[in-house]
Design a binder for these strands. Structure first.
Lengths: 257, 257
DNA sequence: CGCCTGGTTGAGAATCATCAACATCTGTGG
DNA sequence: CCACAGATGTTGATGATTCTCAACCAGGCG
């Protein structure tokens, strides 16, 4: 009903891309994401070495799992196209969403410690995934110092991100949490040369609530309120950020409403 | 007032220890913590190599900083004696405690990503710290594969821990959060051969509240309630777990009170 | 001795969860 | 192409947990 003329965003809308993101003949050197993904710190020859250990399989359908909690840990995964949610089941059986992963992002590193996946991961939409066997990545890292360093940095970033999320859950109101998530997704889209203002949320309201420590109802109410305030345009999962400044103001609690 | 006959716990009460934990002539080979700390996966010769890069300075007094947010990142740190809290300051100036670190635990890894500390760390009591220059640790890891692997595991563990905490903040009541923290500290004491039932909390109520996303008042009330229920003995920072099973029941929400 | 920090306890208020009804969307099969 | 069922999302009314504000207490240190 609302004015979303932008088509649903996929990774294939770049005219110059000779290969589709779901094409599993791609390699790191021709991947559009190689400036933000694992190869970031490597020269061409090194990328080729990395490329040789990476496994690319057919795209995963919505709902299919990359891995499941408590399974043996073998690999970490990079999202090439689509999107993935990671979640874990607590002792008393409730689900906690621990992260959303977009193209160029790496997940599964929480399994390294115990050699067993600490969480599950499933595709939120049809997704292409690069599987990186960790044993081999470790060996390669011994020969390519910049790869070792970059992987350390990647894990460190995950720690920092989790800590920021922790603060969000610990200190911030429902409005602030939702605003922060939207800004995070917006920024990550921008990094991938997509629109920072108009995008489609890959996850359900339930997942958002679960991730942010809120109920579905609260999330829904916040979206409605933001729309009424003229900050957002909301049409189901299609979001447009109308007033970024206002959204930022909400996110860091400096709004005065 | 209450019946705490146990002396305040320090790291020096083992009669067999020939060296005091605050002695900065110690090395990894004679450190009581070498089975739970970084050297864990190494043989004696390798520990010696590790030892050569580690810097041990005079003990830090309560309140002194190991490092500060936004400073250049140089090293990660292992706690040898005492205890440390890590915290970060958000954009709008509020403090968030992100972790408590006890002897044998490693902190500072969130600084690797940006080559700049993402948080600050200060001693909660007089503490001895091992400083591990990260550049050198990386180099050493290239020559000692098991060290590389162990450090990957350490970072992975930090990610898992943060995610567990996230779930705690997102899904659990004040009672559950406090119970979980107490059980965590108890378990970590046990790992160091200390009493799992009687210990002194190194952090203030304020820090506990901050860490758990609660106000001081709420934390205080929970302690009082636990004491009235006969689950805990509380005498200021001196804690005794009277009924572990009950505490566990509270922590995973299976209590029926 | 008295101040100051840290901790406890109480009363009232606010945010968000819960319960419930209803609307909308998706996809399936007739 | 339509009809329907189940899943997903929205909105409203009520209530519980936790926060806020405030007073008070205890201990450490100058």
């Amino acid at each position: 009903m609302s004015a979303h003329s932008a088509p649903a965003q996929t990774e294939i809308h770049t005219p110059a891309a000779s290969r589709c993101a779901h094409d599993f003949q791609v390699n790191c050197n021709n991947c559009r994401l190689n400036t933000i993904c694992l190869p970031l710190a490597l020269d061409i020859a090194q990328v080729e070495q990395l490329d040789r250990i990476i496994q690319r399989s057919r795209p995963l359908q919505k709902g299919e799992h990359l891995y499941r909690q408590d399974e043996d840990f073998q690999s970490v995964f990079a999202v090439r196209a689509g999107s993935v949610k990671a979640y874990s089941i607590t002792d008393n059986g409730q689900e906690q969403v621990t992260g959303f992963y977009l193209p160029g992002e790496v997940l599964g590193m929480d399994g390294i410690a115990k050699n067993r996946h600490a969480s599950s991961a499933r595709a939120m939409e049809t997704s292409s995934i690069c599987e990186i066997p960790f044993e081999k990545l470790g060996e390669l890292s011994l020969r390519i110092p910049s790869l070792q360093k970059h992987f350390f940095q990647l894990m460190s970033q995950e720690i920092s991100d989790d800590q920021r999320l922790l603060t969000l859950l610990s200190k911030n109101s429902a409005d602030q949490r939702v605003a922060a998530l939207l800004l995070s997704i917006s920024a990550r889209n921008k990094r991938r040369q997509l629109s920072a203002a108009n995008f489609r949320l890959p996850m359900s309201r339930t997942d958002i609530g679960n991730y942010l420590g809120l109920t579905v109802e609260t999330v829904s109410r916040v979206f409605s309120r933001f729309q009424k305030m003229g900050v957002l345009g909301v049409d189901n999962k299609e979001i447009s950020i109308v007033d970024v400044e206002a959204l930022r103001a909400v996110a860091d609690g400096s709004e005065n409403a």
